Computed example of a mutant assay.
Amino acid sequence: MDREKTSNSSGRKRRTVTLRDIGLATGYSANTVSRSLADKPDIAPETKEKIRKAAEQMGYIVNASASFLRSGVSRIISIIVGDISNPHFSVMVKEMQTLLQKKGYTCVIFNTEEKPALEKQAIVTSLSQNVDGILICPCPNGEENIAFLRSHHTPFVLVGRRFFTQDTSYVICDDEGGGYLATRYLLTMGHRDILFLNGPGGISSSAERLLGYQRALEEANVPYRSALVRTVPIISGKMEEKILQALEDGISYTAILAFSDLVAWQMICLICRRGQSIPKDYSVIGFDNIKTMYPLRLTSVSSSKTTMARRAVELLLGKLEHRSEEEKHFVLETRIVEGDTVSRRG
C-alpha cells in the first residue's frame, strides 16, 4: 500500500493518506484506486478522474519505493556532471531534463566538481535510489567509477567524454577535429606561436584536442613546442593562478587556444587587467561557443550542445525501452564560429 508521511504547519507528523483512505472516500477498492492512479487501461476514464481528484484534494503522495518494488521502474534518471555552473553543462542539463520530463521521467542532478570521490558518491547514491538510468560526463581519471557503474548493470551513457579502455555508449564532439580546426584557423591568420591552455590529463577531450593541435602545426611545418602547452583547471574560479603563470613566465606567443570558453574568458579578463587588449595584443579562440551578453564576441569551436543532449537522451531511452546490450557511439562534427577575438597577424 502506497503511503507517504506528511507534516502539519506545527511540524508534527500527521496521518498518512493511503490508497485505502482514497477508496473509502470514493467508494472504490484500494486495488481500483491503485490501478486508476497508475492509469491502467481497464479502468474507466470517469473513474480515474474521480479518484485522481480525490487523491489530489486529500494530499496523497505516491511512495516511490513502494512503486519501484511493484514495477521495478522508478521513472528517475540521474544526471551527473562536473561543474553545473559552467554554461556548457547547464545548457545540456536543461535540455536533457526537458526531454526526459516529456517522457515522464524525473531527473536528479549531481555536481562532482570534477573529483572522482564525489563522482563515486553520486553514482552510489543514484544506484541506491534505484534510478532507471544515468547520464554522466565522467570526471578526469574516472575509469574505475565507470567500471563500477558497469558492474551494477544500470543503463548509462557517457556525455562529452569517453574512455578508450572501456566500450561504453557515449555522445561526444569531434575533439581532435575541433583542436585541429582551431589551430589551423589561427595559423591561416598568420600566427605561429600559439599557446594552448589545455584541460587536465585523464580527460579524453584534452588528449584529443592536443592531437588536433599537434596535427595542424605539423601540416603547417610549425615546430611543436611543449612549453606552449599548459594544463589548467577547468572548474569555475580555480583556473586563474595557472593562467597567470602562462602570462607572466616570459613565453612568447601571439595567439591562445583555450580548452573551453570559460578558460578563454578568464584569459581575456587577465590580459585586459594588464592594460592589453584583444585582439590587438593577443588573439584568443575558445571551445564550446557559449552565447553571452558580452560586447566582445568570442571566436570559438562549436558543436551543438542541444544535439549532444538529445542524442544522449535518445541513447539512454533506447537502452531502457529495448533493454539493448549494444553500445553505441556518436561523434558530433565541430566548426569554427568567428567572433571578434582573432585578428590577422602582420
Rank of each mutant, 00 (worst) to 15 (best):
I234R: 00
I234D: 01
I234P: 00
I234M: 09
I235V: 14
S236L: 13
S236C: 11
S236K: 13
G237K: 04
G237D: 00
K238V: 05
K238I: 01
M239H: 10
E240L: 02
I243F: 09
L244N: 14
L244H: 10
L244R: 12
L244M: 13
Q245D: 15
A246T: 11
L247G: 09
E248T: 14
D249A: 00
D249L: 05
D249R: 04
G250Y: 11
I251Q: 13
I251T: 12
I251L: 14
S252R: 13
Y253H: 06
A255S: 11
I256C: 13
A258T: 04
F259T: 01
S260N: 10
S260M: 01
S260G: 06
V263F: 04
V263T: 14
V263D: 09
A264C: 03
W265S: 00
W265E: 12
Q266R: 12
I268D: 06
C269R: 14
C269H: 14
L270D: 08
L270R: 07
C272L: 10
R273K: 15
R274W: 09
G275M: 04
Q276D: 01
S277N: 13
I278V: 15
I278N: 07
I278F: 10
I278H: 09
P279E: 04
P279T: 10
K280P: 01
D281I: 05
Y282P: 04
S283W: 02
S283E: 09
I285E: 11
G286P: 08
G286N: 06
F287V: 11
F287S: 11
F287H: 14
F287A: 06
N289Y: 11
K291D: 10
K291V: 12
T292G: 06
M293R: 12
M293H: 14
M293Q: 13
M293W: 08
M293Y: 11
P295C: 03
P295W: 12
P295R: 11
L296R: 10
L296H: 01
L296N: 02
R297V: 15
L298K: 05
L298E: 09
T299D: 04
T299F: 03
T299Y: 02
S300W: 02
V301D: 09
V301Q: 07
S302D: 15
S303G: 06
S304G: 12
S304M: 08
S304T: 09
K305R: 14
T306A: 04
T306G: 00
T307N: 06
T307M: 10
M308H: 01
M308N: 03
M308W: 01
A309F: 02
R310Q: 05
R310K: 11
R311H: 09
A312R: 06
A312W: 10
V313F: 04
L316E: 07
L317I: 15
L317N: 08
L317R: 08
G318D: 12
